[in-house]
Design a binder for these strands. Sequence first.
DNA 1: ATCGGTCATGTTTGCGCTAACACGATGGAG
DNA 2: CTCCATCGTGTTAGCGCAAACATGACCGAT
Lengths: 346, 346
Amino acid sequence: MAGVEVPFPGARKRPPSQADVAMLAGVSAQTVSRVANGLSNVDGQTRERVLTAMRELGYQRNSAARALVLGRFHMLGVISFDLSAHGNARTLAAISRAAQAAGYSVNVAYAEKPTEDAVQQAFFQLTGQAVDGVVVIEAQILDRQGLHLPSAIPVVVADGAQNSPFSSVDNNQAAGAGAATQHLLDLGHRTVWHVGGPEDSYSARRRAAAWRGTLTQAQAPVPPQHSGDWTAASGYRIGTELAARDDVTAIFAANDHMALGVMLALHEAGRDVPTEVSVVGYDDVPESACFIPPLTTVHQDFEEIGRQCVGLLLDQLDAGVGSAQAVVSVAPRLVVRASTGPPPAA
Amino acid sequence: MAGVEVPFPGARKRPPSQADVAMLAGVSAQTVSRVANGLSNVDGQTRERVLTAMRELGYQRNSAARALVLGRFHMLGVISFDLSAHGNARTLAAISRAAQAAGYSVNVAYAEKPTEDAVQQAFFQLTGQAVDGVVVIEAQILDRQGLHLPSAIPVVVADGAQNSPFSSVDNNQAAGAGAATQHLLDLGHRTVWHVGGPEDSYSARRRAAAWRGTLTQAQAPVPPQHSGDWTAASGYRIGTELAARDDVTAIFAANDHMALGVMLALHEAGRDVPTEVSVVGYDDVPESACFIPPLTTVHQDFEEIGRQCVGLLLDQLDAGVGSAQAVVSVAPRLVVRASTGPPPAA
DNA sequence: ATCGGTCATGTTTGCGCTAACACGATGGAG
DNA sequence: CTCCATCGTGTTAGCGCAAACATGACCGAT
């Protein structure tokens, strides 16, 4: 009997607005706005009445109207190419969490292939959908300045090219890959073979470069590099070749899944891990501790990556887009398990 | 040197509006709107002039203003609990793809735990951020009607409870788990042991129920069920127990990662797969073909799930929220690999 | 008592867009 | 040659919100 407007099915075309709440609470719409925004200059009793009215009507701010008037959307865009890759999914989750904590939502645009066209399209989709900033996960081609950004929108690249014109956050891949290689050398291996990721991936390139650099610095011979496509199947294929060579005693794969494929190939060739061949991966996917044998690998802190991405983006938003370009590196950590050991006695 | 306005740093406070384009093209804002929406009743030459002006200014529709006036946001919300789980990440990717194809964006809300509070909060975040519909991935507690939805918003549940008040899309888990169990029985195993997922997961419950049902129907004894938490580590822990029992010759794990842990435990206990013990997983994660040995498992079509989710949501949007509740089931497929074989000769 | 200052609240305005309507020009039917 | 439908285009209004400004009540200091 009171003014309680029960939303019965089918009725109520539009959700309640500030005006509705204002009417019910007997105040002006502006006062409702002040309460909704938590401004201090509202009388305690008035605020209570407004809050009650809000609850009664189930009022929620219309974010479109709010965005329209503020010019800010409180939404971040994420462009990703392959969410079935563990690292990318984890990074997205972390970005989402960090954004949520900062009061932002995350809008995901999925680009099938990391071609320039696809990225361009994803950018349009996002800016068209009203985002305040964009994170690109594992961008491979963003160094091409050909990207025509519709407006001066902040962009942060996660695990992308380091020479890109954008701020970037990534794992210190050089440190991780270097530690992995050095670990094998320290065990006494004469050299380390590398199963790399795809050539067009900057992550893969940086891991390979660090592998090569570490070998060179240790004056170890640098074996020819093999390149897979991150999948276990490609690791298996390359592993088959490597298993056939007696002089291969240590293999560093650019990710855990390829390492898994390598180990299967070694197993089928009758070469034991780690007594005959040592294998190291990269990523520390949760199940790598249960590989046969448990895999020595490099652990990455995706949560930190996500936090940093969102942090940089919000910084740029506050400081204006022209602000300084930042490059943040997150330290990885070598996790030693049972897949590595000293080389067989020569 | 033409009128191409290059966005130089710091300049240009606000992006161009329809009015700006209209000015440049010498038409009214309404005509620009018509062109932007692809309406037919615009003269060819006029359209060209407008399009040229749009390109010159780099015009993009302001989706906030558009949403404000239309009451539609062209955005779908997705609530997810654990993106590091392979299936969830794949489902999200598929939803994103399908949504994009339908002209919708995807807003991801990450709920840490599938508690009612967290879901409620995620819902508020999404509806507050202006979405037209919501997909909940792997909801565990949505049967509680206690969920207080802010408005009559379409909701579809992917892989959640089947008795929920919402439309749902999921894998036909009964068929998949049944096929896995039957496969082992057909090979001659007297019975099949089950390593289940967490008790509060509907997916896990349904797989376990189908396993039990298949055994019962075949008049095979039903061994006690063990429950893990989807991780390889929990599979390993349970696998250690099972490996100690001589009467265990066939194990069906509720996902591939737990199967991996089980196989490691069997390996360490000196029990060979598949000659002594057969193992089947669920999910067909891409790397399961490279487990040692390659894993027999159940393949799920995540793309189809994503498509169906988006389809149902858009149907509800068009038909009104009161429309019929739909339950869609996507058929899984048993993939037989090297981890299963006949039991050892008794 | 008078004044400037503070506080709570109301009023006005416009963000960018599209639905609805208005209007003039054209064209075929009568 | 008139009439009305059609077509291309312009005009107006309002979506829900918050910034800017306006108002009036109250206060302590003079």
